[in-house]
Design a protein around this nucleic acid. Structure first.
Length: 417
RNA sequence: GGUGGGGUGGCCGAGUGGUUGAAGGCGGCGGUCUUGAAAACCGCUAUAUCCGAUAAGGGUAUCGUGAGUUCGAAUCUCACCCCCACCGCCA
């Protein structure tokens, strides 16, 4: 959620931010009109309540027929104005929710994926003296991946990991957690379910046509799409201590996504699935620290993936590809020989105070004023896509998989095959 | 899952319909006293929002959350959330 005072004070800046994100800037005018009405109604309502408080106090001292009839009139009037106020308040909040976070000034302007900027390419793409297979073919042949059984039991887009597939996933998780713990992150296993208000607070809206999340019937719980949700929620409605910032959390969870309509060559196999395991990084910072912390999260991601020996490139999202929450976002895309192209494996966002404002997470600064923190998130390892990248990059002519050096102790073997 | 108890300001803790934003204490800040410190004493000490000049000042809201009864709710009613104790069940 954007700062209402900022919108009032700098509507042109907000509009140009929306334009850059490809959102209709007229929303700002719409909001300001509703805000104007809202303020008028608030004033009217407060005025009436003030009178009511006075009259009631009088009655408390001394009952009188005149006072009572006056009070009853006021009561009716207040309920009329209150319902008008409620209506405007709801509309105003609706429009406010449609306003995305503003892009940081240095973000390249663009409409979508095609305008994203490749920042750098790192690592050597492997060369094969045979036609490399894709991870699905490799994984099923090796008996470490079973989509057929997944489809039978849970439906299309679900899968089983088996034997060395299990060891590989656990190795990836442990590798990421060890690495992050070494770098000052506290480790968290989070709930895989969360209340609806946390989806709303983190931009994974559970309702409506774009629904991405699974909901639990007859409850306000849903399966989380990322532990960003459960990690951000930890400190909702809290005021953090300044000297405790920045705080770095590493969260492990399963992630569940409906991914409606997302099939095709590029979403084959493990690349796009309804359930996967992820180690996520999350940070709470002072506003002035967030750009630096964002750089650091990106660095963590790069080191993790360099450690795995996977060639990747860093891509900065253009304004049109930031989504509602992010002011700035970088993806890591791994080279995937099976498709002969790069595929997204991590994503790190600085959501500035957009998320914190909604979740009401503050800290008290040196002047004793409480201000909203900045929140940032980044993928350490999403095991499903990591397995895609490893199988495809480390495959041999025989269809076996060399285990990346850094995972060998965790997996307990040199080769899967 | 059952039964019982409970959620009040930074913390503890009063308060069962009428100047209660809320007694008292602790903590914190400022001051008096002191060579200095402690003690003692005095004063101050929530947040959000609206009006206002980014002032002075004022209004409104907030006692787990939401709705309701009432002229008036921390206090009464209902629903929900959470915590504690005991019992049951269970990996």
């Amino acid at each position: 959620m954007l700062d209402i005072n900022f919108i009032r004070q700098y509507p042109e800046e907000v509009k140009s931010g929306l334009k850059r994100k490809g959102v209709d800037p007229k929303l700002v005018d719409k909001f300001l009109r509703l805000d104007e009405e809202w303020r008028a109604k608030t004033a009217a309502l407060d005025q009436l309540k003030s009178e009511q408080n006075k009259v009631s106090a009088e009655i408390g001292k001394k009952k009188s027929a005149h006072g009572m009839s006056q009070a009853k009139l006021l009561k009716n009037r207040i309920s009329e104005i209150k319902s008008e106020y409620d209506e405007i308040d709801a509309k105003r909040n609706e429009v406010l929710a449609l306003l995305p976070n503003l892009p940081a000034p240095e973000v390249p302007t663009g409409e979508g994926e095609k305008d994203n900027k490749v920042v750098r390419e790192v690592g050597e793409k492997p060369t094969f003296d045979f036609k490399p297979k894709d991870h699905l073919e490799l994984g099923e042949a090796l008996g470490i991946l079973d989509f057929e059984a997944g489809a039978k039991v849970a439906g299309s887009g679900f899968y089983y990991l088996k034997n060395d597939g299990v060891l590989l996933e656990l190795a990836l998780v442990r590798y990421a957690l060890d690495f992050l713990a070494e770098h000052g992150f506290s480790l968290w296993f989070t709930p895989d379910l969360a209340r609806e208000k946390f989806y709303l607070g983190t931009g994974y809206s559970p309702r409506g046509p774009e629904a991405q999340t699974y909901e639990i019937k007859d409850s306000d719980l849903g399966l989380i799409a990322t532990s960003e949700i459960s990690l951000a929620g930890i400190h909702s409605d809290e005021t953090l201590i300044e000297t405790d910032l920045p705080r770095f959390y590493a969260g492990y969870s399963h992630c569940f996504r409906q991914e409606a309509g997302g099939y095709g060559k590029y979403s084959k196999g493990l690349y796009r699935v309804h359930q996967f395991t992820k180690v996520e990084m999350f940070a709470f910072t002072k506003p002035e620290d967030s750009p630096e912390v964002h750089r650091m999260l990106l660095e963590m991601e790069e080191k993790l993936w360099q450690g795995l020996g996977i060639p990747y490139r860093v891509v900065e999202m253009c304004t049109g590809d930031l989504g509602a929450q992010a002011a700035r976002k970088f993806d890591l895309e791994a080279w995937m020989p099976g498709r002969g192209d790069y595929g997204e494996i991590t994503s790190t966002s600085n959501t500035t105070d957009y998320q914190a404002r909604r979740l009401n997470i503050k800290y008290r600064n040196g002047d004793g004023k409480s201000v909203f923190v900045h929140t940032l998130n980044g993928t350490a390892v999403a095991t499903s896509r990591a397995i895609v990248a490893i199988l495809e990059n480390y495959q041999t002519k025989q269809g076996t998989i060399r285990v990346p050096k850094i995972l060998r102790d965790y997996v307990g073997k040199l080769e899967i095959g």
